[in-house]
Simulated scan of single mutants.
Amino acid sequence: MWNHLRPTLVFTVALTLITGLVYPLAVTGLAGAIFPAKAAGSLVARNGAVVGSSLIGQSFTGERYFHGRPSATTAPDPSDASKTVPAPYNAANSGGSNLGPTNPALIDRVKDDVAKLKAETPAAGIPADLVTTSASGLDPDISPEAALFQVPRVAKARAISEDQLRTVVAAHTEGRLLGILGEPRVNVLALNLALNAQTGK
């Protein structure tokens, strides 16, 4: 019996070590050597301080900044661990809201967001990504249309011309990968940092 059991145990231990330890460490080490910035989380630093990641969105609420997509991520409620509270762009709890299209909470939230955006720019159509969350809740990008929609508000708050701001948006618009994959997009953090650098604030 031991003659049959020993090869099975050796094989199980060997595969566990190879696939659970050796392979992950090798891939992590290789990624760190070839793509050090990406392997470290694509962190963005300014003046020696990390201000965010180019891969994870964050909340920008001021009038002077472009805003990203809504985020439906949550975190444990500090006063009751059995419940959750909204925590936008919580990278430890990536996910969508899972609310169906007829859910009253989702409908009310979207209506409120649409009303705020209409008050901000009454004459323009509202891009869908400004009122809908992504599946991950962490999307760092918005569509060029969503960025251009916000130009009047940001230009007024920063006291710069809308044309000048549209030029900055165009400079930070990335096209489709290889010309065919995905959609054109604007990284909100990169755009806001560029504006801060340009205006000296």
Results as ranks from 00 to 15, higher is better:
S97V: 01
A92R: 09
V85E: 11
V85S: 13
G95K: 04
I56C: 11
V168H: 03
V110T: 13
Q150L: 05
L106N: 02
L9V: 13
T167H: 10
R46T: 13
A91F: 01
L17C: 13
T8Y: 06
L99Y: 03
A157H: 10
S54P: 11
A87F: 14
A135N: 11
T19A: 11
R69H: 01
P104Q: 02
N47A: 14
A190K: 14
L189E: 07
P24S: 05
P127Y: 08
G179Q: 06
L9N: 04
Q164L: 13
E162C: 02
H67D: 00
S97D: 13
G175F: 11
P76Y: 08
D129W: 10
P7L: 06
A72L: 01
V10S: 00
V85M: 15
V110S: 05
N196R: 13
A123G: 03
T133L: 06
L148I: 02
A159T: 09
T61C: 00
P86K: 13
A147K: 06
K83V: 09
A75V: 02
F11G: 08
N3Q: 12
G96M: 11
P184Q: 10
P184A: 06
A81Y: 11
V27T: 13
L181K: 00
S143M: 09
T8F: 08
A33W: 12
G48Y: 01
W2C: 00
T19Q: 05
E174L: 05
P76D: 11
A14M: 11
I160C: 03
F11Y: 12
V114W: 09
N187W: 03
